[in-house]
C-alpha cells in the first residue's frame, strides 16, 4: 500500500514537472513581450494551438513527429511575423488594455480559422517516444522526461541569449527603457519583431510538446489561458526567472492537487496566486517597474 502511494507520488511529481515545462515555454513569451513592448500578447495562445495542429497534421502525413515539430515552429514563425507587422505593432505605444483586446481578437479569429480548417473534433497525437524509464523505482514515460529536459534546455538557452548576446543585451536594455535604446541608434522596432517571433516560436513549441499529453482541440488555447496567466502573475510579469519558478510551482500544485482531490487541480493554483499576490502585489520576481 505504501509502496503504491510512493510510486503514485513520484509519477505525479514527474507529470507536474513536465506540465511546468509546457507552462514555462508558453509563458516565457508572454513575459518577454510584456517586459519589452509592454503588451500582453494573448495571441500566443493561438500560436500554441496552431503549433499543436501543425504537428498533428505533419505527423499524420509523414509519420515523423520531429519533422512536425520543425514544421510547426516554422509555420508559426511566418504567421506571427505577418500578425506582428500588420496588427500588433500598432498598439505598442498604447496602454496595455489595447494590446490585450486586440490580441484577444487575433486569438479568437485564430480559433475560428482552426475550426474552419480542422473541424471541431479533437485530434490525437501519438507520443513520439514510447517506453518508460525507472526513476526511484517508478516507471515513468520517457516522453515526460524528454519534455522536462527540453524545457530546461530552453530556459538556459533563453538566459544565454538574453545575457550573453548583443541582441539579448539590447532586449534587456529595452525592458529597462525603450526610449533610450532608440537614442543610442538601435532599431527598436526590429528588436520588437525579434522578441515577438521568439515568443511565438516558443509558444508553438509548447503546443507541440503538449499535444501528445492532450487531445488537440480548437479550444485548447483557451483552456490553458488561465493557467498561463496564473504562472505569469505568480512569477511576476517580465521576469524569466520568475516565470520558471512559478511554472514549477503551478505544475506541482496542479499535479499533486489532483492527486488529493480532482477539482483541486484547477482551484489550487488560483489560491496560491491570491496568497502570493496578497504578500507581494507584483508577484514573486516582479520588479518595482511593474507598478506602473
Amino acid at each position: 500500500m505504501i509502496q503504491m502511494n510512493w510510486q503514485l507520488l513520484i509519477s505525479a511529481i514527474v507529470l507536474g514537472l513536465s506540465m511546468s515545462g509546457v507552462y514555462f515555454l508558453l509563458t516565457v513569451g508572454l513575459s518577454l513581450c510584456y517586459g519589452l513592448m509592454r503588451i500582453i500578447s494573448l495571441d500566443q495562445f493561438f500560436y500554441y494551438a496552431l503549433g499543436a495542429y501543425m504537428v498533428y497534421t505533419i505527423n499524420a502525413m509523414t509519420g515523423n513527429f520531429w519533422l512536425g515539430m520543425l514544421g510547426a515552429m516554422l509555420s508559426v514563425l511566418v504567421v506571427a511575423f505577418v500578425v506582428e507587422r500588420l496588427i500588433n505593432k500598432r498598439v505598442y505605444s498604447k496602454p496595455v488594455m489595447f494590446s490585450m483586446i486586440l490580441t484577444f481578437g487575433v486569438n479568437l479569429m485564430g480559433v475560428g480559422l482552426i475550426k474552419y480548417v480542422w473541424g471541431l473534433t479533437p485530434k490525437p497525437v501519438a507520443s513520439p517516444l514510447a517506453g518508460r524509464v525507472m526513476i526511484l523505482g517508478t516507471g515513468v514515460p520517457v516522453y515526460r522526461v524528454f519534455v522536462i529536459a527540453l524545457a530546461v534546455v530552453v530556459y538556459f538557452a533563453v538566459q544565454y541569449f538574453l545575457n550573453k548576446t548583443i541582441l539579448g543585451t539590447a532586449i534587456r536594455a529595452g525592458i529597462d527603457d525603450a526610449e533610450k535604446v532608440k537614442a543610442l541608434g538601435i532599431n527598436i522596432s526590429r528588436l520588437f519583431t525579434v522578441t515577438f517571433l521568439l515568443s511565438s516560436v516558443l509558444s508553438a513549441l509548447a503546443g507541440v510538446i503538449h499535444a501528445p499529453f492532450v487531445m488537440v482541440s480548437p479550444e485548447m488555447g483557451m483552456t490553458i489561458t488561465a493557467f498561463a496567466f496564473m504562472v505569469v502573475i505568480i512569477g511576476g510579469l517580465g521576469s524569466i526567472k520568475g516565470t520558471m519558478v512559478s511554472a514549477l510551482i503551478v505544475g506541482q500544485v496542479v499535479s499533486l492537487g489532483s492527486l488529493i482531490w480532482a477539482p483541486l487541480a484547477e482551484m489550487a493554483p488560483f489560491l496560491v496566486m491570491i496568497i502570493i499576490l496578497l504578500l507581494k502585489p507584483t508577484g514573486l520576481y516582479g520588479s518595482k517597474l511593474m507598478y506602473r
Binding site: 548583443i166 539590447a170 536594455a173 529597462d176
Partner: peptide
C-alpha cells in the same frame, strides 16, 4: 538613465553594436 540592469561594458557594447 543608464541601463540599470546592464554593466558598463554591456552599455558600451550596445552603442558599438548600433554604430
Amino acid at each position: 538613465h543608464v541601463f540599470l540592469d546592464l554593466t558598463v561594458r554591456e552599455n558600451l557594447e550596445l552603442s558599438s553594436y548600433a554604430t
